[in-house]
Design a protein around this nucleic acid. Structure first.
Lengths: 141, 141
DNA sequence: ATGCGTGCAAATCGTTTGCAGGTTG
DNA sequence: CAACCTGCAAACGATTTGCACGCAT
């Protein structure tokens, strides 16, 4: 069994919830997507494979996946929520184009280290962070 | 006349648009808010002062303010769009204690420079950024 | 058997749009 | 007058919720 599914199962059990076929299918599909996705993406991909899961179930499952640390909501300008799975993915930050909504992922080791330093300076224990650069992407500027 | 209003007037003129009473009131109110805001915030604040402006007008004015560089859309998780005015603000970042909610403002010149570098690497024009460290403050750890 | 889960359809919420009347140059 | 603006109400699209039935423990 894959770590993501194990994690999810443990999380659900700890909350007295169940790992149903639908939740399993949704998780499996999400783990196949490397990059951002929307609710509709999952729905269409599953439907294309004749896997029967309603959009409602996807909407209801996503918060559970976020809560269990497998999936993250990513920042966005648009109305539609975007997500990405986060297991086995190194941490990265985001640039969001305020014009077209494009999201560029990047990561910078030195920035991470400076954040740690800033934390120390204020005796603040950093448990997580989120850096978003907003601006114009190459095509929109 | 304040620079923001001048900027806006120039922008509008360049597009053949007009600086109406409504647009002026909206801009004035936005410039008073130091931090982020939502459409409804502006609406309620104006209404409380008996200034008559419809939500529709706010929705229609915000893109103009963004386009003219006075206001920025800030990335967000929620459904509601959030904005902030961007003129004449020194930038700072935040540490948020997840236990007591305390917010520590800090700024770090070297982090800013590294961000600029990262932007250049992707040919991304950075107009704003937002760094949030979440964790435990001195007293809560 | 007891709840939790499901899909559907209706409801909700933020935002956008069509329209009729008002204002500006 | 032509073009822009406004407020209202209706439309819209993403998400949430109420409900009746189904399924897991």
């Amino acid at each position: 069994m894959k770590p993501a599914e194990q994690l999810f199962r443990d999380y659900l059990k700890s909350k007295g919830l169940r790992l149903t076929r639908e939740r399993e299918e949704i998780l499996k599909e999400i783990m196949k997507i490397h990059g951002h996705f929307e609710v509709e993406d999952i729905y269409l991909r599953l439907r294309r494979k004749k896997v029967k899961v309603s959009q409602t179930s996807i909407y209801r499952t996503l918060p559970l996946l976020v809560e269990s640390g497998i999936v993250q909501k990513t920042p966005c300008d648009r109305m539609k929520a975007r997500y990405e799975h986060v297991l086995g993915h190194r941490h990265h930050d985001h640039m969001v184009c305020i014009k077209c909504g494009r999201i560029i992922e990047f990561s910078n080791e030195r920035i991470e280290r400076l954040q740690e330093e800033a934390g120390k300076k204020y005796r603040f224990e950093i448990l997580g962070h989120r850096l978003v650069l907003s601006g114009l992407c190459e095509e929109c500027r």
